[in-house]
Amino acid sequence: MHPINRSAGRTVHIYNTNDPDTVLGGLVLTPGVTNSNFYAMVKILFIFSGPFYLRVENGARIEKDDNPLRPGRYHIISDASFDVNNEPWLVRTISCASGSRAAAFTEAVRSRDRRCIISGANVYTFDGVDFWNGFEAAHVFPLAYEGYWVERGYGRWITMQPTIGGSINSVQNGMLLASDIHQLFDAYDFSINPDDNYKVVVFRPNSRVVGDQHLDPTYFSRPDAPVDSLLRWHYRQAVLANMRGAGEPVFEHDFPPGSDIVGVILHGPKAAERMEFELFSRFGAQMELFS
């Protein structure tokens, strides 16, 4: 079972005008992406040493405005040099961490949100009992990479420390999502851009999340809300994973009974990173018992 890559279905392609035969990246164009959004994405994808602008293949310059981006071939025009941004993206599949640390995190997120913040679906309550089936507390920055979190000092963004679990398990690193939407978020199929009025940007079309919606800014103004710096980190990861080069792999997570899961992972791309993530996600609770 070989994973497809994220270039499948791209309708926007990016080139260096000095090398028009080499595709540097691209985008599956979804509703709501504007010219201004595209410029911001390009600034994540590449490291520029001077000013640049974008031009369509027929020579028309693209302005940084709110007009919808159109499908096509776009050329980067710059008198200065620029390089592809090789910043790593963290391989992430479907996370379902458990254990006492994750339980405390889940309770804090449930208490604050009580609804999927993307779809707006409310948790059903009957006779004083909450029914949480179909909802999951999602980490914006994945718990499986806590070492990376500590190494990079991302805990500096957290102002509300949890009573258990370290800064990565703060409610400010979480949000309540419908279970299937959580899968899409973990897979970088969509993200939230805090620098565009909390706009939902869809990178791979799906049946659950629609782009071109802005989330309620009053939610994110709460002192215990997911912090902008972490949403910005996730958005950068989504841009790099979906738009860079020939396209990063899309990993399968729905394995039929009897599947050789380990074999599929070890013989696929980014095997070491994916195995590390899968082991933590599947056995994190047991490992916590012995730590």
Rank of each mutant, 00 (worst) to 15 (best):
Leu90Val: 10
Val91Asp: 02
Val91Cys: 12
Thr93Leu: 06
Thr93Cys: 09
Ile94Leu: 04
Ile94Cys: 10
Ser95Glu: 12
Cys96Leu: 06
Cys96Ser: 13
Cys96Met: 04
Ser98Ile: 02
Gly99Gln: 12
Gly99Pro: 09
Gly99Ala: 05
Gly99Met: 05
Ser100Lys: 12
Arg101Leu: 08
Ala102Met: 03
Ala103Pro: 00
Ala104Trp: 08
Ala104Leu: 07
Ala104Arg: 09
Phe105Gly: 04
Thr106His: 05
Thr106Trp: 00
Thr106Met: 07
Glu107Arg: 15
Arg110Gln: 15
Arg110Tyr: 07
Ser111Pro: 08
Ser111Ile: 03
Ser111Gly: 13
Arg112Asp: 10
Asp113Met: 05
Asp113Lys: 09
Arg114Cys: 13
Arg114Asp: 12
Arg115Cys: 15
Arg115Val: 07
Cys116Gln: 06
Ile117Trp: 04
Ile117Tyr: 09
Ile117His: 02
Ile118Asp: 01
Ser119Ile: 02
Ser119Asp: 08
Ser119Tyr: 04
Ser119Arg: 03
Ser119Asn: 06
Gly120Gln: 12
Gly120Arg: 11
Ala121Cys: 15
Asn122Glu: 12
Asn122Phe: 12
Val123Lys: 03
Val123Met: 14
Val123His: 06
Val123Ile: 14
Thr125Pro: 05
Phe126Arg: 15
Asp127Asn: 15
Asp127Lys: 13
Asp130Asn: 11
Asp130His: 07
Phe131Pro: 12
Trp132Cys: 01
Trp132Ser: 01
Trp132Glu: 14
Asn133Tyr: 15
Gly134Arg: 08
Gly134Thr: 01
Phe135Thr: 00
Phe135Trp: 04
Glu136Met: 04
Glu136Asp: 14
Ala137Arg: 00
Ala137Ile: 00
Ala137Pro: 03
Ala137Ser: 10
His139Gly: 04
Val140Trp: 06
Phe141His: 04
Leu143Ile: 11
Ala144Asn: 03
Ala144Lys: 01
Tyr145Glu: 06
Glu146Cys: 07
Glu146Pro: 00
Glu146Gly: 01
Glu146His: 09
Glu146Thr: 11
Glu146Trp: 08
Tyr148Leu: 13
Tyr148Arg: 15
Tyr148Pro: 01
Trp149Asn: 06
Trp149Glu: 08
Trp149Lys: 14
Arg152Gln: 13
Gly153Ile: 03
Gly153Asp: 00
Tyr154Pro: 00
Tyr154Met: 05
Gly155Gln: 03
Gly155Lys: 09
Gly155Ser: 04
Arg156Lys: 13
Arg156Glu: 15
Trp157Pro: 05
Ile158Lys: 00
Thr159Pro: 05
Met160Asn: 05
Met160Gln: 15
